[in-house]
């Protein structure tokens, strides 16, 4: 039988202790008041969401931890982390949650809170700018391909005025202006 090694110094911990003074209880209320937060406190920390997540192994904080962190009020850690932005929005966690916590939807709400304080990854901001400038994410360039297939060169009915006018007045417009 192998003998366990003597170790000195601080005992190993799985997670760093939480500094209670940094907790922000309002964070939980913010999320709860958003469209998908109602079932948030029903979470019983079973980790089913993490087991269902195809990319949780890449993350410092796993989905079930993120939900717990929201409940505890760890605003900074959740909203400044890469996890919410790397979420695939695949809804696999949400589909499996036995407590009907709308996990994926809640991560969308988190991204909105992060965006409200200007924290948006550069390439996502570039997408916002495309929507303001062009009113769409993809623009038809090879219209001859369309004509070859018997389609009209320009998409019938397409008009980007509506979406551009709307988004100029909402947070997208503010984010793009702020980023310029």
């Amino acid at each position: 039988m192998a003998e366990s090694k003597q170790t000195s110094g601080k005992p190993m911990t799985l997670v760093d202790p939480i500094d209670m003074s940094l907790l922000d209880a309002k964070f939980r209320d913010d999320i709860k008041s958003m469209p998908d937060g109602e079932e948030l406190s029903a979470c019983f920390a079973c980790s089913t969401c993490t087991a269902a997540c195809p990319i949780a192994n890449q993350w410092t904080y796993k989905p079930h931890q993120l939900i717990r962190m929201i409940l505890l009020g760890m605003r900074e850690e959740v909203l400044s982390g890469k996890e919410i932005w790397e979420c695939l929005t695949c809804f696999q966690c949400q589909e499996r949650c036995p407590q009907k916590v709308r996990i994926t939807d809640i991560f969308f709400d988190c991204k909105n809170l992060a965006a409200e304080s200007g924290k948006v990854p550069e390439k996502v901001l570039a997408i916002a700018k495309e929507l303001i400038d062009k009113g769409q994410l993809y623009v038809v360039t090879s219209d001859w391909e369309r004509e070859d297939l018997g389609l009209e060169a320009a998409v019938p009915g397409l008009s980007t005025d509506g979406i551009r006018a709307i988004l100029k007045e909402t947070r997208t417009g503010r984010l793009v202006k702020g980023g310029e």
């Binding site: 958003m34 469209p35 932005w85 929005t89 969308f108 709400d109 991204k111 909105n112 965006a115 948006v120 996502v124 997408i127 916002a128 929507l131 009113g135 769409q136 994410l137 993809y138 009915g157 397409l158 008009s159 980007t160 005025d161 509506g162 979406i163 709307i166 988004l167 909402t170 947070r171 997208t172 984010l175």
Partner: peptide, 19 residues
């Protein structure tokens, strides 16, 4: 459909729920 363009994609939902 007339007068429509892009849905904004999940990216728009992420940064600007109301928009």
């Amino acid at each position: 459909m007339p007068d429509v363009a892009c849905c904004g994609s999940p990216n728009l939902r992420a940064i600007d729920y109301f928009g």
